[in-house]
Design a protein around this nucleic acid. Sequence first.
DNA 1: CGTTTGCTTGAATTCTGTCAAAGCAGGTGG
DNA 2: CCACCTGCTTTGACAGAATTCAAGCAAACG
Lengths: 193, 193
Amino acid sequence: MYDRYFENLMSKVPISESDRQQIEPFLAVKKLRRRQFLLQEGDVWKQVAFVEKGALRMYTVAETGAEHIIQFAIEGWFIGDLFSFLTGEPATYTIEAIEDSDVIVMSKADHDHLLKTCPAYSSFHRELVTGAYIALQRRLNSIFSQSLEERYESFMVKYPNIAQRVPQHMIASYLGLTPETLSRVRRRLASGK
Amino acid sequence: MYDRYFENLMSKVPISESDRQQIEPFLAVKKLRRRQFLLQEGDVWKQVAFVEKGALRMYTVAETGAEHIIQFAIEGWFIGDLFSFLTGEPATYTIEAIEDSDVIVMSKADHDHLLKTCPAYSSFHRELVTGAYIALQRRLNSIFSQSLEERYESFMVKYPNIAQRVPQHMIASYLGLTPETLSRVRRRLASGK
DNA sequence: CGTTTGCTTGAATTCTGTCAAAGCAGGTGG
DNA sequence: CCACCTGCTTTGACAGAATTCAAGCAAACG
């Protein structure tokens, strides 16, 4: 049931069978339909979520109504509003299913308990956050130093399995440009560079 | 000597006197003159660095020669290339002193040792990375959803002590725009909004 | 089918970057 | 003490790029 979750965990940190037995009882599955919310802006995020199946997006809504996608998450990814999680303040992000999805969740209480009692879990979580931080730094740098064409192509190369499944306007939002502009970027790339 | 370092540590995590005595021997001070490098692109980053005094910037250099500042660090901040640190690969960032600075460093070996043996240190480091990640997410979101004016003002409010000490063109680089554009943004804000 | 959703295209507008030049300290050496 | 750098900021003119607004079209959906 939780095979993909533990695969991910073990790919980062070696864990014993007893570790697994300590963690597994805390997991639960939450099923989401397309367009359903895992988190709504204003609510407090009190869990750790891992995507078992499907695809989600986390985004903010500006005063203008424009949505800006901060993160995608497909099978094998974690997602959540860390700030709300840590501070207990209302979330500024919304998390919504792009497809029908199965999400494996653990409560914050259980998570905190594992951090203290299970060193393997603790290391795992550290690597997770660190990796996310590094990825975000690179994304920032690509925004600063690459052209739209380069950014789009990098995205397609780096996340081909996301690109195939999510609508273009969401990729545009993730890249920080309008759907129209992305469409033109694609045309430029298609027509002999 | 390492007061500021431990102040920072204790502000996030309660530590015992024995924790302190376990950590302190691993610390060392490195003095930097203005324009001197703490890390050069291509070298491997093998330490954890805390700014005791002064100001540094971490940036990338694009093929065009343009510099893009990923992060500032003044007294009380940590700085480093986490990717190079974790993977042992050459750094893609350069870290340079903006002012004469004192930096407290710990080797990666000692850091790893502490992560395993000192739970307080481990928690501290987790909070550090998590906080940095959250801050970066917000920065990304502000790039996506705020006007240049708003971004500049947010920066000035959030980091007044950086703004006062760093030349404008570096703030422009941090915000992801040219010095000329920043100058015009400032004029617009000055002249009755 | 009719409706929704997503993608593309065009034209006009607004912004931002680029290039070039000038102004303005602060610091240095003669 | 002054003249001269040097580093940094400001300004102007212009070109290029991206957004906005509007419309059209195809595919998917109920």
